[in-house]
Nucleic acid binder design. Structure first.
Lengths: 248, 248
DNA sequence: CAGGAACTGTGCGTTAACGCACACAGATTC
DNA sequence: GAATCTGTGTGCGTTAACGCACAGTTCCTG
C-alpha cells in the first residue's frame, strides 16, 4: 500500500498547479464573501487509495471537500462484513456529523478513488456554519441528499440483484470522475456492495459479455454508458434526480 | 380501515385529557421560552393505523411530534416492493426534510402503531428553526441519529437473516411503546422488513418456540425481552447507543 | 348462526447468493 | 527467466429466501 501511495503522489504532483477549491461544487457555490473567509484555512491534501479519513466513533478533526477523488462511507459490522452507504465526490463533503453536533459517526470514511481534496479544520468550518448563512443552507441540503442516497441504498440492498447493484455503483462512481475509467478491483467493489468477490466477478462478466464494460486487473472502462443505465435498477436515477433537485 | 379508525378514536378519546406535548422528547427538551412560542400552534391529531402523513415527493405541510404513536418511514420501489428505513416515536419527529430545504423526500411516512401526535404547520416550525437556537440544535442532532438508524438498517438488510431483523424491529418498536404489546400483523411487518409474509411467520414461530414472544392475529406480546436482545444482531444496540449519545 | 374476511401455518419447487477450493493469467521482483 | 504476488475465472455443494398454492383458524358482520 505504501508503495502505491508514493507512486500516486509522484504521478499526481504535476497536477497540483491546476488544482483549485472551486473544483468542489459546494465550495464553488459559496459567495466570494464566504470563500474569502475560509480560503486561508483550506489545505490541499493528497487522498491516496485506501486512506481512512475517520473510523467509526472517532472524533472528526476536519471536513473534507473532494475535488477529483471519491470517498466511500462504509458501515462495518463486528464480524468484518461491510456495506457502503454513500459515496462522496466533488459534489459533496465528508464529515457532516461535525455540523450536527455528534462529532463522530458510526461509519468509516475510506478513499475509494485516489486524488485530492481540500480540508478545513473542525473549528473553522463550525465557525462558518454557526453564522447560519449560505454554508449552513448548502450543508443542510447536502445532508438531505445524503439521506436520500442512504435510504435508496438500503432498499437496493434488499430488493435488487448483484448485477443491478453493480450498475448503480458504477454509474454513481462514474458521475464523480472526469472520464469513464475506474481504478478498482472486484474485491474492493465486493466490499462496498457487501457481497462476495465471486459474485462481482460473475456480474462483471455479464456486463462485459453485453459490451457494457471492459476490465482487467483493477481497471474498469465503461464502454456503453446508455446501456449501463438501461441495465441498472431505478435506484440510480432516483438518487441522481433528487440530488439534482436539492443541490442545483 | 375507516371502521377500525373510528374504534381507535373512540377508545382513545378518554385519554385526551392526559395528553401533553411534553410526552414527546423533543418538545419536552425545549426551554419554556421556545415552548411558549410554539405551543399556541401545536395541534393534537389522531394517528390511526395506516394513516399516511406524506407520500414520496409530496410537499410537507406539517412536522409531526409523535407522543404514543409510531410512524414508519418507508421507501417504496416502482414495483411496489418496500423497506422501512427508520421508525419514529415519542423520541423524534417526522418531517426533517422541512428543515433541510428540500420540502419533500423520496420516502413515505405511515402510522405503524396508532396513537396521537402533535403537529405544527410548516411555516411555524421553520420560523422557530430559523432563530438558530435550541430547536435547531436538537433537530440537527436528531437528523444525525436518523442517519445512523438508516445506515444500520442498510447493513442489517444486507447481512442479517430475517429472524435477527425481526428481533431488531421488535426491540426498536418496543422502545417506543409503554408496554410490551404490539398491534401489528405479520403481513405489515413483512412490508417493513421488505421480506415475504411467510418468512416473518417462520421467524415469529421460532421466537415463539423459544419462549420469547406470544402472538395471535395482529397482536404480539414480548414475554422475554432479555432473550430477545440476545437473539438480535448487533444493529439494535448500535442504534440505541448512538441515539442515546446524541439525544441525551 | 352462516358467510366471509383477515390472519396465520405449511409444503412444495425454484433461485440467488454463499463458502470453499483451486486453476489461471498478468504483473512485479530478484 | 524463475519465483511470487495479485487479480480474476470457475465449479462445486449448501443455504436462505423466494413465489405460489392452499389449508386452518379466528374474528367480524349481516
Amino acid at each position: 500500500m505504501s508503495d502505491s501511495n508514493r507512486l500516486i503522489t509522484n504521478k499526481t504532483n504535476g497536477f497540483l498547479g491546476i488544482h483549485s477549491p472551486i473544483e468542489n461544487s459546494i465550495l464553488q457555490m459559496l459567495s466570494v464573501d464566504v470563500q474569502q473567509r475560509i480560503l486561508p484555512y483550506l489545505e490541499l491534501v493528497d487522498m491516496p487509495l485506501g486512506k481512512v479519513l475517520y473510523e467509526s466513533g472517532e472524533l472528526l478533526r476536519h471536513v473534507y471537500f473532494p475535488t477529483n477523488c471519491i470517498v466511500s462511507l462504509l458501515y462495518v459490522l463486528e464480524d468484518g462484513a461491510s456495506a457502503e452507504i454513500s459515496v462522496v465526490g466533488h459534489d459533496g463533503l465528508v464529515g457532516v456529523s461535525l455540523f450536527m453536533g455528534g462529532g463522530s459517526t458510526t461509519s468509516r470514511a475510506v478513499v475509494q478513488s485516489s486524488g485530492f481534496a481540500y480540508r478545513l479544520p473542525r473549528l473553522r468550518i463550525k465557525d462558518e456554519f454557526n453564522r447560519h448563512g449560505e454554508l449552513m443552507l448548502l450543508v443542510l441540503r447536502y445532508i438531505q441528499s445524503l439521506l436520500t442516497q442512504m435510504a435508496q441504498t438500503a432498499v437496493c440492498n434488499r430488493h435488487h440483484n448483484i448485477e443491478q447493484q453493480l450498475c448503480r455503483w458504477l454509474l454513481l462512481s462514474l458521475d464523480l470522475l472526469k472520464d469513464n475509467h475506474l481504478v478498482m478491483t472486484q474485491e474492493l467493489i465486493a466490499n462496498m456492495l457487501g457481497v462476495r468477490r465471486e459474485g462481482v466477478t460473475e456480474a462483471a462478466g455479464c456486463l462485459h459479455k453485453q459490451g457494457v464494460i471492459d476490465y482487467s486487473r483493477g481497471h474498469i472502462m465503461v464502454t456503453d454508458r446508455p446501456k449501463l443505465e438501461r441495465l441498472c435498477c431505478e435506484c440510480y436515477a432516483v438518487v441522481r434526480a433528487e440530488t439534482a433537485r436539492l443541490m442545483s
